[in-house]
Simulated assay, not measured.
Amino acid sequence: MTKLLDQALEIARSLPADAQDDIARIVLQLAGAEAADPVILSDDERSAIAASRKAAARGEFATEAQVRATWAKHGL
């Protein structure tokens, strides 16, 4: 095991059980040991993704200030 992975696991041990399970699922998926179930999108979600792709094609992206405001809103 690498030093970085060992450090990450040590930090993960201090997290709540649900966060530890989330991390474990991600590691298993990245290692190819667990296949993720497909995500079924609603019509609204499909429309939102289509609108986002069109905006990206036009070069319309959030400013750094908008991204920071969104992160702050969600405590990130």
Rank of each mutant, 00 (worst) to 15 (best):
E45V: 00
Q20S: 11
A56F: 14
S42R: 04
I11H: 03
E34A: 09
A19F: 02
A24M: 08
A12T: 13
G32N: 04
L4A: 15
A33K: 15
A35N: 06
L4K: 15
S47C: 07
S47H: 11
A55S: 14
I23G: 04
S52F: 06
P16T: 06
L4N: 15
R58I: 02
P38K: 02
K73V: 01
E45K: 01
K3E: 11
M1N: 12
P38L: 01
R46Q: 12
A19G: 01
A55E: 14
E60W: 05
K3S: 10
V67M: 03
A12L: 10
E64C: 02
P38H: 01
A62G: 04
E34R: 14
R46F: 04
E34C: 03
H74E: 00
L41E: 04
A55Y: 10
D44E: 15
I26Q: 07
T2V: 04
A69E: 06
G59S: 04
V27T: 04
A62Q: 14
G75L: 01
D37E: 14
Q66H: 03
I40R: 08
A55I: 09
A48G: 11
I40H: 07
I11F: 00
I40Y: 04
W71M: 11
E34N: 05
P38A: 02
R13M: 10
D6W: 03
D44I: 06
I49R: 14
K54Q: 15
A72S: 02
S14G: 14
S42G: 05
L28D: 09
A48F: 08
W71K: 11
Q29T: 02
A17Y: 08
L9N: 15
A57Y: 07
K3C: 02
E10F: 09
R25Y: 02
V67R: 03
Q66R: 05
A65G: 04
G75H: 01
A56V: 13
M1K: 12
A8W: 13
D6K: 12
A50C: 05
L9T: 13
